[in-house]
Amino acid sequence: MQRVNMIMAESPGLITICLLGYLLSAECTVFLDHENANKILNRPKRYNSGKLEEFVQGNLERECMEEKCSFEEAREVFENTERTTEFWKQYVDGDQCESNPCLNGGSCKDDINSYECWCPFGFEGKNCELDVTCNIKNGRCEQFCKNSADNKVVCSCTEGYRLAENQKSCEPAVPFPCGRVSVSQTSKLTRAETVFPDVDYVNSTEAETILDNITQSTQSFNDFTRVVGGEDAKPGQFPWQVVLNGKVDAFCGGSIVNEKWIVTAAHCVETGVKITVVAGEHNIEETEHTEQKRNVIRIIPHHNYNAAINKYNHDIALLELDEPLVLNSYVTPICIADKEYTNIFLKFGSGYVSGWGRVFHKGRSALVLQYLRVPLVDRATCLRSTKFTIYNNMFCAGFHEGGRDSCQGDSGGPHVTEVEGTSFLTGIISWGEECAMKGKYGIYTKVSRYVNWIKEKTKLT
């Protein structure tokens, strides 16, 4: 034993070699072989497995989906700052455009905790909710729209109204504003409101030439003092309507412009014939205590009207009353817009006519005020429907199939267009061939041609 100890002390290297040989010859039971080890760690190889990531292109799944990435790591994937920024906006807080917040056709661009709407022409605001041009839906104005110097929408209202708090709607500024039905039992019968379409306001006024200088022999019209197929109006439903009495009662109609003036057809009036105007009328054979009678003290036909040349060209006249009318729910003026808007309103496509005229061709006159909704007829169809001249200051309205029309005794009465609950004068009943005849239409004086003249002559002093 002493000898062994001496050998170990003198030859430590020998001992180490012996131990190493023993270990190498022993069977290893701690580690699995290569094949079995792979069965336990069965993990798919990654895209760049075996390579240094710093030297390969980034992978979106590896960089940002398996674990949260930084902007720089995302930049490695896209290799483009702009594309990385677009991805980053949604990656950080989701897609803010998912709810489609942009209105009126706006395009949404996502941002971090926010979004941006790219608005089409005519709109602005956070969600493109603000109209900035009158060309689109009248700028959301209830009545009139004008573009300011910086191309912003400025709404306005006709006389007797003021802008509401929203700067879009119009509200009454006087007790009985024009064009409004205020009798409670008839307010439910107000005709369907007309909503502004998209309009090209630059070209809204037709490029028409008034044929002022045409000389033409007097034409022989049949029954051209021209509501057939209409309905009984309720008291106060058309408070701007008046009836004219002269040699015979209810020979023509008219509309209240203001307390002192009536507008009617020029062919209705004769110099030297006494005319009485009755406002607030409903049943011409009954006294309903809503009527107001006034005498006409002055007749002003349009300066281009000449019955000797043509009885229905420039067929418009103004009547001055001896005493002002007292405005109330049964006696209310009709609204008159400017030339541009009167023309736009007419193009809405349908209007209402009213009167006490004959209820059928050569038949009896109506006792109760009649009204009828009539569609506008395109000019080409209008011209083809008659052998008589249709001037540019006239328009056609009615039904091709016949059966409904204005008729004798309705002449001078109103053709009105309702705009968001307020009625505007767009025409004056003038003439036609018979009444409600198939293929024939009622012919009306186009008020847009005469609004400046009306307003100039009827100013209240």
Rank of each mutant, 00 (worst) to 15 (best):
G280Q: 02
L325A: 00
C102R: 00
L383T: 15
K126G: 06
Y91D: 10
Y441Q: 02
G106Q: 01
H303M: 08
L189W: 10
I17Y: 12
L460K: 14
L319H: 01
N80S: 15
E76M: 15
G122S: 04
E401R: 15
G421Y: 04
W431F: 14
G355Y: 15
Y91V: 15
T29Q: 10
V195D: 13
W118Y: 11
K188R: 08
R191I: 11
E281T: 13
E79A: 15
D405S: 15
L130Q: 14
Y312E: 02
R404Y: 15
L19W: 07
G398D: 03
H303P: 10
R404L: 15
A173F: 09
C18V: 12
F55H: 15
E401T: 12
E171F: 09
N393Q: 05
Y352M: 05
R294D: 00
S217P: 12
S217E: 12
N166R: 02
I454N: 01
I256A: 01
T386Q: 10
L367C: 08
S385V: 13
S350V: 10
K89T: 13
D200M: 06
I262Q: 01
T445W: 01
N258C: 01
V377A: 07
C141S: 00
L346S: 03
V416N: 03
A173Y: 09
C128K: 02
Q167I: 05
N295F: 06
A307T: 07
S148I: 06
L321D: 00
A366K: 14
S169W: 06
H415I: 03
D315Y: 01
V269M: 08
T386V: 07
K168F: 13
L103A: 05
T458P: 01
G236C: 02
T84P: 15
L163N: 03
I275N: 03
R294G: 01
I17Q: 03
T271V: 07
G349W: 05
E66H: 05
A307V: 08
E35P: 11
G106S: 03
H267G: 04
S184Q: 06
P172D: 04
K45S: 06
E433F: 10
G254N: 00
G357A: 14
A307H: 10
S354F: 07
V331K: 00
W356E: 02
C268Y: 01
D315S: 03
G106T: 01
Y391H: 14
T332L: 12
E420D: 14
R62P: 06
N313I: 10
F31I: 15
T133P: 04
F31D: 07
R294H: 02
I256K: 01
P44E: 13
M65H: 15
V374A: 11
D212Q: 13
Q96T: 04
T458G: 03
F238N: 03
E82C: 03
R298C: 03
G442L: 07
I210C: 08
E79I: 13
I334F: 01
G236M: 06
P375R: 15
V92L: 12
V451E: 03
H34L: 07
I344G: 09
G105A: 04
N138D: 03
A37H: 07
N59C: 03
N304P: 02
G230V: 11
E320M: 05
E124S: 06
E10K: 15
N245E: 06
V242L: 02
P177A: 10
